[in-house]
Each structure stands twice: as C-alpha cells, then as structure tokens.
Design a protein around this nucleic acid. Structure first.
Lengths: 341, 341
DNA sequence: TTGTAAGCGTTATCAC
DNA sequence: GTGATAACGCTTACAA
C-alpha cells in the first residue's frame, strides 16, 4: 500500500506543465529561469492544495546530498550526553540538517556497526563520542572522505576535528581546590582506565597533588567505569578499608550519583563526614540539600561547535583536511559539598 | 568532491559479473537464485575488500522503504524524554530501523515543521510526544497513510495509536497517599493547563481529595508549565501568602527540581517543614539526602511499546487502521519525602 | 546459474 | 519562458 502522496510528475500533469518547470518553481528558481509570476503562483498554490511533499530520497540520489548527519553517543539517557545531543540537534536543525541518532550503549562493537549504518544512510557527516581506545573504524570512515568530528575526547594524533573539554585542567582544578580546603587524603573515583578522558582527569589529579607536595597514593585511585554502580561500590570499598579519605573526587556524573547512594546507606553526611567534588554539572547539582561543588563542562558549546565544524567540513574540503582541535575550558563551580578541614 | 566509495556497478565490473548477481548475493539471496558458492564467495570477498557500502538512498527509492522512523519530542535534555528516547532508539535498532531525532523545543510551530520534515525524509512512521491541544498536523499525516504513534498522552478520540501513562491514577494515588499520611492542605503545582497529561493528573488530585471528604481549594492548584522556573516560582508564591500547605504535589520532574531550589533558598527542610511527592522518577530520586517519594512512569516500556506498535503498523495496514490505546500503570514509590502529620 | 533492462522521484543539461 | 531526457544507484521482473 503506498502513501497517497502526490509526486512531482502528478503535480505537473495536474498543472499541465512540465516536471522541470514545477521543480524549478518549487526550488525557488522561478526568477533565474524567468518563469512567469502567474505560472509560479499556480504551481505553489496547487502544490499546497494537494499537499505535495518532495521526496528527499529522490533528491538525495540525484544531488548526493541527504541533508542528514549522524550522531553516535554512548548513552542518550545520561544527562551529560542528552544535553550535548540537544544542542547538536538544535544547531543542526538551524543549519537545515536532520539528525540520525545512534546509541552505542557503550559497546565498541555496536559503535562499529553504527558507523557503517550511517554510511549506508549516506549521512553527510558524523559526530561521534567514541567509547574506547580503538579508532580504526573512525579512521576508515574519515579516509573514505566523510567528514567526522570527535566530541568529548580529543582526536588521536589530532587526525580529525575534535571538540573536547580540558579534562586535565578540570582534574587539576578540582583537586587543587580540595587541597586548598585543607584536604590531603583525596580519593579519586575514576571512569574507564585507559580512556583519554579518564587519563587526563587522573593526570590533573596527580599533578595537583604533586604540585602541592602530596605524594599520590595509588590505592586512592579507584574504580573502572563511569557508572552509578561503580561510584556506589568504590565508596563502600573505600570506607570498609582503613584506607580512609577526607574528600572524594568523582570523575563522572553517574559515578557521583552512585556515591550519593553509598553515603546515604552509610549515613554519611556531605560535607560533614566527607567532602565531595564532581566532574560534570547536572540539573540538580545546585538544588540538592547540600548543593554540590562541581567541575562544569560547556556542553552546549561542545554540541554547537561540533556541528559548525562538521558543516564547514561538509561544505569545504580544504577545511575538512585541516583538523581543528578545540579544548573547551572547564570551570569550577563552588557550592557547599566541600568542607574546610 | 565525491566520497571515494565504490558502487555496485563498479563492483560488478571488477568481478566481471552482472549487477543483478552482485545485488542478489549481497542481499543474501544466493540460495534462492542458485548462485554458485564460488561466485557468492567471490562477491562477498571483493565487496569487503573494496569496502563496499550499499546506498540506502538508492535502495529506498526503489523499494519505498527507508528503514527510518521519526521521533518528535519536546525536549531531549529533559531526563524523562531522554529515557524514552533511549529505549526507542534501542528497540528501533533491534528491529533494524534508524531513528531521526527531532526536538520541538516545546513549540507547536516547530512541531508542525518537523512533521513535514520527516515526511520529506520518507520515514516509515512517526512517534510523537505532542506539545499541545491542537492535533491537526498529526491528523493530516496520519490520513496521508503514514503510521503514527502518540506517546506520553492519549490520542484524541482514540484516533491513532497511543501509549501513555495512567496519569489520572497517578494523580489520584499520589494525593491519596498524602491524605493517608494526614495531610489535608495539599498544593498541586501543575504543568500546562489544558494539556491532557496535566488535566488528568489534576483530576486525579481533585477526585482523591473529594473521595476523602476534602474540599479542593482552587488556590492550591498553581502554576502553568512543566519547567524548573515554574516550580521555583510557585513555591515562592505559595509560602509568601498565608495560603499555606503542609504538602506539595509536583506534577513534573522539572517542576520538582524548581521546588528544591525554592526550598533550599527558604531553608525549608523536606519532609520536616513540608512534604513533597513528585510525578516522574529521576536518576537521583533515590539518592538524595531525603530520598524522594514519587509516582513512577514506565518509561522504557512506553518507548518499546511505541516502537513495536509503530512497526506493526508499518508492516500491516489492517493493524494501522485499528488504533491501539495503551495506558501504562504508574506506581507509587514510597521513600521519605513525605512526613506523617 | 546468470544477465538485461525498466523504473523509483527527483535534478540538471540541453534544447527550443 | 518552458520542456525532453538522461542520470543518480539500486532492485526486480523477465529472459536466457
């Protein structure tokens, strides 16, 4: 059963005009082809009347432009990525591109499939927040000529465009702030070890300690992924050992939620019993019983910039081949989850 | 500049085979066309070698199936919709459909444009969480033959498929619970008046009061949209009047965040100074200093069901024309933000 | 077991 | 001012 949509041929027949003329009018080229006012009006009126909607598919086949871009992120239900996705969708729409949204669920295998999927759909470019260390599939896409922008982490060897936060500085600032508040034993609950984002944050943490003459304790760098469960478990482990800390630096928003859970269960109060600082600002950070001190990332800027760069790459091969690597500043938002000791 | 992708014609030439044969092999029809093992293998090997990716665009034009569905929601950065979107993306992907994500930003005019946009892209169906009261554009799409599923609210006159929560029951349960805890003056901070979701929740609130012999006080039904700001402002207004309440029923997750903000500023403690119950469960509901009592909606079920219904509609015209209207149960999650008085 | 050719709904190149 | 027609990259009768 076909949709009862009229096509351009039918429309031309109804108007007793050629397809060409109709197409021209509908594409706003009446002037340049000097089509009479009267004809143009007739076309537009009839098109509206019959609810004509041109097929982007057919147009794409001919013009080699689909007007779509692909977005691959690890988890759309994570507010961090949801916020980024929102700004990407908005910016893309403003620039007349539609967005195919793909969730890699944190699996590199899915991510790889999604990249191919987007190629099949002939997206004009891809924005990707990659899962892991391995980039072969992205490299391959890029080499095939498709514009690619990496977000949330930098590009290896600055090979592609990328927009990321200055994770190192964020890690440094957070740790430094804790130290300035008198903390010396600071546990760092990390995300995926080896991932660029994580390593940079951890390095910032270590360097801040070192710069303040504090010997980093390896046992205080804990955890293995960016999940709630990880945050929960590490706190439990930490405070069941004698390896105590007066402050926690959580490297991700979900990790932070997990630490809440553990603290609640253990009846530990923030900041009375333990101080907490978290990477990533969240909608509720400011609104908690104890408003949370955080390292904020410029999420909507990240989204907007990635789209702008992508679209410039689409329109300009030169630009595409000269990768731009942007590091957005993070900023420390001081609230009340860190206590002076 | 063209992407350096090989096409099926090129591939056939390289293999010294016809396009037909190559197409058949690549579509897994080797068997039914009794293509020799050897040929099939050659084709597959060469395709891989040259990194052949078939054009979904060309295929769509021919087959009239794009393998895409459209999703229109009012705000992807709202965790409620982000969660739904996540489950929709997942389910769609499992069923071999890609998702075009559209954010209507809460504006009916954008929503209307998006509907047309999706039609241009020849999506095979649309899932939409509509903004407002006016449905003409949706009706029109549906009449054009495109399958449509409404989520988050019911279908007017049960004209289309819909998957929604039992908002009335949720409103009733929340209010009833507050009453059972001894509350009599219960303020209801509502979302958009006139919207179906809102009206049902409010009606549940009113009926629960009435059933318990409490005269609803119109002044206690406050507010006008589902935003943080609204939640914030209504609490400020409420507690600067003498029109006090011992409990608040917030009709939306963002509203609830706004009430937090106001309570913090006013140094009011939940539940000591005021009890709070909120529509919508959030990632942090359980993890707050005072874990929050909520009315939970089955978000991932909503997403999955909407996709299943949509795809059945795509595959079966009969089914499409016999609208299914699903009301998902809400459930009351009792934590500690409501105090017995 | 494989191939030829028409056609999907547009746009673009000529032609008049 | 307007129109015929080829072409985009596939799938799919119909042939052989």
């Amino acid at each position: 059963m076909k949709n009862n949509h009229i096509d351009i041929r039918e429309l031309a027949r109804l108007l007793d005009l050629s397809i060409t003329t109709v197409s021209r009018v509908l594409n706003g080229k009446s002037k340049s082809y000097r089509i009479s006012e009267k004809t143009a009006e007739r076309v537009i009126k009839t098109a509206k009347e019959y609810n004509y909607v041109p097929s982007q598919i057919a147009r794409s086949l001919k013009t080699d432009k689909t007007g779509t871009i692909g977005l691959i992120i690890p988890d759309i239900s994570n507010p961090f990525f949801a916020d980024i996705a929102a700004s990407i969708e908005r910016e893309a729409r403003a620039k007349e591109f539609s967005l195919i949204l793909c969730d890699s669920e944190g699996h590199i295998s899915i991510e790889k499939e999604l990249v191919v999927l987007l190629q099949r759909h002939k997206v004009e470019g891809i924005i990707i927040a990659p899962i892991g260390i391995n980039f072969d599939h992205v490299v391959q896409v890029y080499k095939s000529g498709l514009p690619v922008v990496i977000i949330d982490r930098g590009s290896p060897d600055e090979e592609f465009h990328s927009v990321t936060s200055d994770n190192y500085q964020g890690g440094y600032d957070a740790t430094n702030y804790l130290i300035s508040m008198g903390h010396k034993r600071i546990a760092c609950i990390q995300g995926i070890p080896g991932s660029q984002v994580n390593e940079e944050r951890v390095q910032g943490y270590k360097d801040a300690l070192a710069d303040n003459g504090i010997q980093p304790d390896k046992n205080l760098i804990m955890g293995h992924d960016f999940t709630i469960e990880n945050g929960y478990r590490q706190i439990k482990i930490l405070y069941s050992s004698k390896n105590l800390a007066t402050a926690i630096f959580s490297l991700g928003n979900l990790i932070t939620l997990g630490t809440f859970k553990a603290f609640n269960e253990m009846k530990m109060k923030v900041p009375d019993d333990v101080s907490l600082i978290s990477f990533d600002e969240q909608p509720h950070s400011a609104l908690l019983g104890t408003p949370m001190t955080t390292i904020n990332q410029q999420k909507s800027e990240m989204g907007m910039l990635s789209v702008d760069i992508l679209i410039r790459s689409i329109n300009n091969k030169e630009f595409r081949n000269r990768p731009v690597n942007i590091k957005l500043k993070t900023n420390l938002i001081i609230r009340s989850s860190v206590r002076k000791v």
